[in-house]
Amino acid sequence: MGRAAVVRLLHALGVIAVVVTLTFALARLLPGDPFASIADHPSVDAAWRARLRTTYGFDEPLLAQFVRWCGAVLRGDLGYSFSAQRPVRELLAHALPWTLLLSSVALTVGGVLGIALGSGQAVRRGGWADRLTGSTTLVLASIPDVVVATAVLVLFGQRLRWFPIGGATGLDGGGAGDVARHLVLPAATLALLVAVTLARFHRAAMVRGADADYLLAARASGLSRWRIFWRHALPNAIAPTLTVIGVLLPILLTGTIFVEKVFAWPGMGSVLANAVLARDYHVVTAVALLSTTAVVVASAAIDALLAWLDPRTRAR
């Protein structure tokens, strides 16, 4: 057990190192740099332009820059954001709680909804409710996130005016109630997107397991349908669903750019989008570091959960 954990940890560190190196290199392959918009103006003196870049080390070879950056990261210094005019750590420390709030609420609501929908469909498979839910989730899964987000925004924010459209400011701005009101629409949109994906996977897993002999044996043993569902059918079908959740988890952390943009939610997605446009290298690489770590941690957590659920994987 212990040995496997160490191997797993080394493997995870390797993954993080590769992703961070690639991101560092790719960000710098984009044309321009953080000063392109100001320093490359024809009126700016060439000598001053060069001095600016020397000051921040952008004239050094890429490898030297990378080594210096790695050293800084190991000391806990993620660099400076030129576009936001503040240290990257501060920027992320501000955005991360917003993203964690949004994604955890969306994942919980969407997860429960998706598993419930998928299970309900599987139990009544072939019936009208199954077919209706199936086509609805298919349509919703096919529409791009941004369209769903915009539709939700227009309908509930603009037309019905049930919830504010955007501009959440934080506990010091409007208090918890205000944050909660701003949370409803983006969280509902994300939860819906999570739910439709999960419902499709979960229904398939439940249907695949529906003919299992142990379910027939459980019915022949006089167990109630409710107990058979909770104790036998659901735990045996949940593994693929949990794996999908593991894949969704890191996407929710940074991949919610569109939803965050549409609802002006001050989370990691917004930070990343702004940073890429402004060639804000340090921010982009720091977000990559964070999200890769999240992927690795999420997949380890899901594997641990699957092992806990399934004694057969524990034995190995």
């Binding site: 002999d213 142990y214 044996a217 036998h232 735990p235 045996n236 659920l309 004694p311 057969r312």
Partner: peptide, 15 residues
């Protein structure tokens, strides 16, 4: 009471 064919699948593997 009832008993079905395949002993490998008649019991829930997770319990």
């Amino acid at each position: 009471g009832a008993l079905f064919q395949d002993p490998t699948t008649a019991l829930d593997p997770l319990m």
